[in-house]
Design a protein around this nucleic acid. Structure first.
Lengths: 154, 154
DNA sequence: ATTCGTGCAAAAGCTTTGCATGTAG
DNA sequence: CTACATGCAAAGCTTTTGCACGAAT
């Protein structure tokens, strides 16, 4: 068994939950994807292994995994909520507004911002979420071309 | 008329839209609030001025204002989407998970992150959105007390 | 006259819940 | 045996859409 699953099992048991086959599948699917998965995508991939897993189980499991901090939810404006495993460190995202390509950014980018805010505003248990949206080089070029051809038509 | 409304009007007209009474009210409500407003809160405040404005108008107007970059949407996991005016500069937030107090953070906090990302990933037109969520000092104290009394009951 | 915007009501999603059945400890 | 999990179906929300009326150009 993968160490990731062993660790997850331990955490679940600490909270009084069992690692059922469904929960196991869902965890594996999310981890193997590496990146963001929506509820739909999780359902689809889980059902490839067992078509009888229901959508409500996905929802309930996601809630449960969130509550014990095994997975993290991020919710970009205009998008479905996405889920990914946490595995110890937070991460941030750089997204292309056009092709939706997503680059994962390192926690270090934000330096000591966490402690800074904690001190300055006396907040506790701060979690940071950075979303950077722009246009990747490729899409930027395409957009430029589109603009040019629009101008010519007028 | 406020300069903010004049500017908004100009931007709307540039895109071929009109500044209708409803759109005017919605813009004012969001700007006057200063911080984050949800769809519900916008509807409530708009209807204090005119009870016959419908929810679908709020949705449609919000979509339109987003599309011309007059307002910005942020969507924290487990919360409703929130809206605020942009007014030329990005801003970031520190939010208390319990009392919802919102502190506006300075753009400078993120330093040259923008240029850094631009160079490193060759992205263009990057806008940054930082959301920091935690517990303010007051709520943190209250939560501690609640936890203690829960333990005693068991 | 024609295009744009709104309100209403219905429809469409997405998410949660109640309940009976099944499973693990 | 008891508590926990699941699947199914129904209910609950939030958001979007179709359509007819009204307003602006």
């Amino acid at each position: 068994m993968q160490p990731f699953i062993q660790a997850s099992n331990a955490i679940l048991r600490q909270h009084g939950y069992r690692l059922t086959p469904q929960r196991h599948m869902i965890l594996c699917v999310i981890q193997e994807a590496g990146g963001h998965l929506s509820i739909d995508q999780i359902l689809e991939r889980v059902q490839q292994q067992n078509p009888y897993v229901s959508l409500s189980t996905i929802y309930r499991t996601i809630d449960l995994l969130k509550s014990v901090d095994l997975i993290h939810e991020s919710h970009l404006p205009g998008e479905q909520p996405m889920y990914e495993t946490i595995e110890g460190h937070a991460h941030h995202h750089l997204i292309c507004r056009r092709c939706r390509a997503t680059i994962h950014l390192d926690q270090e980018l934000l330096g000591n911002l966490n402690e800074q805010l904690q001190k300055q505003y006396q907040f506790h248990g701060i979690s940071l979420g950075l979303v950077a949206a722009g246009y990747c080089n490729n899409c930027w070029t395409i957009l430029q071309q589109e603009q040019n051809s629009n101008l010519e038509q007028e």
